[in-house]
Simulated scan of single mutants.
Amino acid sequence: MQFGVFTVGDVTPDPTTGRVPTEAERIKAMVTIAQKAEEVGLDVFATGEHHNEPFVPSSPTTLLGFVAARTSRLVLSTATTLITTNDPVRIAEEYAMLQHLADGRVDLTLGRGNTAPVYPWFGQDIRQGINLAVENYALLHRLWREHVVDWQGRFRTPLQGFTSTPRPLDGVPPFVWHGSIRSPEIAEQAAYYGDGFFANHIFWPAEHTQRMVGLYRQRFEHYGHGSADQAVVGLGGQVFVRANSQDAVREFRPYFDNAPVYGHGPSLEEFSAQTPLTVGSPQQVIERTLGFREYIGDYQRQLFLIDHAGLPLKTVLEQLDILGEQVVPVLRREFDALRPAHVPDAPTHASLRAARDAATATTEAATTAAGAGATP
């Protein structure tokens, strides 16, 4: 199972000091967080994509390319790549380029975003959000798997004899997760292609996430990709952890109360009871996270949001130390012990390439055997 962190890249005042980091400081802080994630033994770093203040990660491939040059093992991903407002041709080319630069340590999570004005900013209509997600991914899927593409759709100019360059590394496209908070159509899309489904799992109660993941698993099996429990699932989540829960709650409360996304609403205690937000000791984080398996089954990736709401970099790095030393080793051991042998690990470039090669060898052997049988 993979464990990691994701960032939404918000530039938010620290409510305890009033200080606002500069954009340059925030961008460089995200790089530092990624490097620290690798140092403490985490598996994944993911960045969001936003084109509005107070967020800075408008160019995920630029950020991840920079991180790739400063890491050697970390899987580089996105918390959201906007499939609705980005040209799928550019997504195909930019992430294939990143895949080469990072020696295959790349996957991405496609989503529609949470900012309505982004649609007209990029010449699209929010009322077509689902249709854009479906059509654009259908094209992206082909661009990574077909050398020459002829294509015509509703939302971009036609393609005639087009080849996306560079081609995916080793002929193996980056693995795709389809991210959603509330849209069953996206769970259906992930299942149709046999891709991963990433449930944000931050703002909604367990029952909602259970329904969404359950739908994806059911449809994954329906389309013949494997049994429902073999479907590839990822979860988001947010934690703040200190040696004891009282210190964690006291320290995190002003950040929660003033957060740009969920601040000025339910109390920290109410929000923690109704959603997967966990603020407490390492043991509390371990127990709460292990409990996710009880309602969504075995899953492959857990990402934590730890740098939101103006938390200073020093505090975020301390959080990473605690996760790497006290939380993730226990979670990794417990989840691995519980997972049945037939449930797959999280896909990587190496595993996808091996599966492709094995399938090719099987096909070639069958063809050879058929030809030998037909010889008089």
Rank of each mutant, 00 (worst) to 15 (best):
M1D: 11
Q2H: 14
F3T: 13
V5H: 03
F6Q: 02
T22F: 05
M30W: 01
V31W: 00
T32P: 02
T32L: 08
V40M: 10
V44F: 03
A46S: 15
G48D: 05
E53K: 01
E53W: 02
P54E: 07
P54D: 06
V56C: 05
P60D: 10
P60H: 10
P60T: 09
T61G: 01
L64D: 03
V67C: 04
R70S: 00
T71A: 04
S72L: 01
R73P: 03
L74M: 04
L82A: 10
T84H: 06
T85P: 03
D87L: 01
D87P: 06
I91W: 11
M97W: 07
L98K: 02
H100S: 00
D107G: 14
L108M: 13
L110F: 10
G111M: 04
R112S: 12
T115W: 02
V118Y: 02
I126L: 10
N131M: 07
N131V: 01
A133K: 13
V134I: 15
V134F: 09
E135M: 13
L140V: 01
H141M: 09
H147N: 06
H147V: 06
W151H: 13
G153H: 05
R154Y: 07
R156Q: 14
T157E: 14
T157K: 15
P158S: 07
P158Y: 04
Q160M: 05
G161T: 04
S164P: 03
S164M: 06
T165C: 05
R167P: 00
L169M: 04
D170V: 01
G171F: 01
S180M: 06
S183V: 09
P184A: 09
E185P: 08
I186L: 11
A190Q: 03
A190L: 11
G194E: 02
G196I: 07
A199G: 05
W204P: 03
A206W: 00
E207I: 01
Q210K: 14
V213Q: 11
R219C: 00
H222A: 08
H222S: 03
H222M: 03
G226I: 04
V232P: 12
L235Q: 03
L235T: 01
G237Y: 05
G237N: 08
G237E: 06
V239P: 11
Q246N: 12
E251M: 10
E251H: 04
F252S: 09
F252N: 09
R253D: 12
P254M: 09
D257E: 15
G263S: 12
S267W: 09
E270Q: 09
E270M: 05
L277W: 00
V279L: 09
G280V: 13
Q283P: 07
Q284M: 13
V285C: 12
T289L: 04
E294F: 01
Y295M: 11
I296Y: 06
D298E: 13
Q300L: 07
Q300F: 10
L303I: 02
P312W: 08
P312F: 03
L313V: 08
V316K: 10
L317Y: 10
L323Y: 08
E325H: 12
E325M: 13
Q326H: 15
V327A: 15
V327I: 15
V328S: 14
V330Y: 11
D336K: 14
D336V: 06
L338P: 09
H342E: 15
V343F: 02
P344S: 12
T348R: 07
L352V: 04
A354C: 08
D357S: 14
A359V: 11
A361G: 11
T362D: 11
T362G: 15
G371S: 12
T375D: 07
